[in-house]
């Protein structure tokens, strides 16, 4: 039987030295981890690397033309950041509808990413913001685009000795949205979600990114739908066609939260709602 212990580093260096060790698991907000460990017997529990005390991992700061977020930024901090409200409205919308007040006060950006659930609500916004992740290990770091980070449900390219230490994206002056459906508004995991980042010029779509959550093993870019929308005006016809295309791009499954057919249908409905909102906000 291994004795559980707690490591509470004050610096990133210290944290990175500990993270690769056998039986050590990083704790950010703990909202996924403690649920998972709930039924793990005493002797089987890991040593907890509590990241809280590493101050540099909590920041929200401009970087170049964009923004750099520390992985320990909580959903509540995202919700309240006026900087993010203008620069990444999708991310703010997602952070404000997830979980409950209690969960949002603890749940972190880095935890949502590392957990790797295709239903993680911050992920579709990060896809449409073309986020880049900085992964650090003792002695170095590497950059990975968010789209290359996930291999499947709960599976990522993060190595055992690495931590996510920054999430970086360009400032978007575009219009964006995040919409989701769950069994109820609070405390429910998404059955399906859609995020988009759209810029219009002279009434036409100049650039567009659309990401779908909870309808495939990882978050999915709706690239055919994006291609179709490029250069078009957002009117009833083009929006209807886009919705049909996006439904076709989803690859959902039946599970405890929903059924494949319903999810596919709702991808179109949510995308339509969001695009109409953008069209009428002109």
């Amino acid at each position: 039987m291994r004795e559980a212990s707690v490591i509470a580093p004050r610096s990133l260096r210290e944290a990175l030295r500990a993270v690769g060790r056998k039986g050590v698991v990083a704790v950010a907000g703990g909202t996924d981890l403690l649920v998972r460990l709930h039924d793990v017997a005493a002797g089987e529990r890991p040593s907890f690397l509590v990241l809280d005390g590493v101050r540099t991992l909590h920041s929200i700061a401009p970087r170049g033309k964009g923004l750099a977020l520390g992985p320990l930024v909580t959903f509540s901090e995202i919700e309240r950041s006026s900087l993010l409200r203008t620069l990444a409205p999708q991310l703010v919308e997602a952070a404000s509808v997830a979980g409950s007040v209690q969960i949002r006060n603890r749940a972190t950006l880095g935890g949502n990413i590392a957990n790797g659930s295709p239903a993680g609500d911050l992920l579709p916004p990060l896809y449409v913001l073309s986020a880049r992740l900085e992964l650090s290990y003792s002695g170095g770091r590497r950059q990975v685009m968010i789209e290359d980070f996930f291999k499947g449900p709960g599976e990522t390219v993060l190595r055992r000795n690495e931590l996510i230490t920054r999430v970086v994206f360009e400032r978007s002056q575009n219009r964006g949205f995040f919409l989701r459906l769950a069994v109820r508004r609070a405390l429910a995991i998404s059955k399906v979600s859609v995020a988009a980042n759209v810029s219009l010029r002279n009434g036409r779509v100049q650039s567009v990114r659309i990401a779908l959550g909870a309808v495939a093993p990882t978050v999915l870019r709706a690239s055919r739908t994006e291609e179709y929308l490029l250069g078009r005006e957002l009117d009833r016809d083009s929006i209807e066609t886009a919705c049909g295309l996006a439904s076709g791009e989803a690859a959902p499954i039946d599970d405890i939260r929903s059924e494949a057919d319903y999810r596919r249908e709702m991808v179109g409905v949510l995308l339509g709602r969001g695009l109409l909102r953008i069209a009428s906000a002109r």
């Binding site: 907000g29 703990g30 907890f48 969960i103 603890r106």
Partner: peptide
């Protein structure tokens, strides 16, 4: 507000 069930005592 937070859930005391989702935070470790050492925290």
């Amino acid at each position: 507000a937070l859930n005391a069930c989702l935070i470790l005592a050492p925290q």
